[in-house]
Amino acid sequence: MGLDVPVPDFSTLSRRGAGLSIPEESKDQRACPIKLVVDSTGLKIFGEGEWLQNKHKTKSKRKSWRKLHLGLDLTTGDIVCSDLTKDDVGDPTALPELLDQIDAPVSRFLADGAYDGDPTSDLLVDRFGEALEIVIPPPITAVLSLDAARDPTPRDKHIAEIRDKGRLAWQVSSGYNHRSRGEAQIGRWKMVIGPKLKARNFPNQKTEARIGTNILNKMNGLGRAKYEAVA
């Protein structure tokens, strides 16, 4: 096009990445509370082991990963919270910092069995109130609480329904199947943004992940498919 556009080299981008401040997107007044689904996935990083493998044609002993945590609003399709952690951080451990990013009421929370347990339930109720509907599948070995006959908890009700109707029927009745949209968002990330992180150090990788979140939300704001039942 005949344009003289200066393009910074990788070293400049890397040096500025750690201190890059990404502005918060303007949020319209929400018409209804968030229906939040949370999931995580691994992203490959190009570490020392991969560098030695490429240079000396040796086999790396351990692959390096980072863990990407995403929270999706089922109503709008936006990523309302995200975080990048090291691969030894469990999903429940990363949850508090994810919830810190949400400044709106949440009416429903969906996640896989990794989040099952009292610490997660107590955290969610403390943040969003007793009216929050928590949909987390209990493990096969789950047992009812001691006070389940007189005052069953939501988890007790899930366990009882699974025993009576089966796990697949519970997934339909509880709406747990909608969690697949969180998995679809992760697939979308890896197709559009990519399955690898290009930055070398952890602070820059966190910045790179925040940029990826903004990109997907911007694409979602430009328009998304609508689905209607025809029969």
Rank of each mutant, 00 (worst) to 15 (best):
K59W: 00
K59P: 00
S60Q: 09
R62S: 12
S64T: 08
W65L: 06
R66A: 12
R66V: 05
R66F: 03
G71S: 14
D73P: 09
T76D: 09
T76M: 10
G77W: 07
S82F: 05
S82M: 11
T85K: 13
D87H: 09
D88Q: 15
V89Y: 07
L95E: 02
P96A: 06
P96E: 05
L99I: 08
D100C: 06
I102A: 06
P105W: 14
V106S: 01
V106W: 00
S107H: 01
R108Y: 03
R108W: 04
F109D: 02
L110K: 00
D112L: 09
D112E: 10
G113A: 15
Y115I: 05
Y115H: 05
G117C: 14
D118L: 06
S121K: 14
D122F: 04
V125L: 14
V125M: 08
F128D: 00
F128K: 02
F128L: 03
G129L: 02
L132H: 01
V135Q: 01
V135M: 03
I136L: 05
P139R: 10
P139H: 05
I140R: 15
V143Q: 14
S145M: 12
D147V: 15
A148W: 11
A149P: 07
R150S: 11
D151Y: 09
R155G: 03
K157F: 00
K157P: 04
H158N: 10
I159D: 07
E161H: 14
I162P: 04
D164I: 00
L168N: 08
W170G: 00
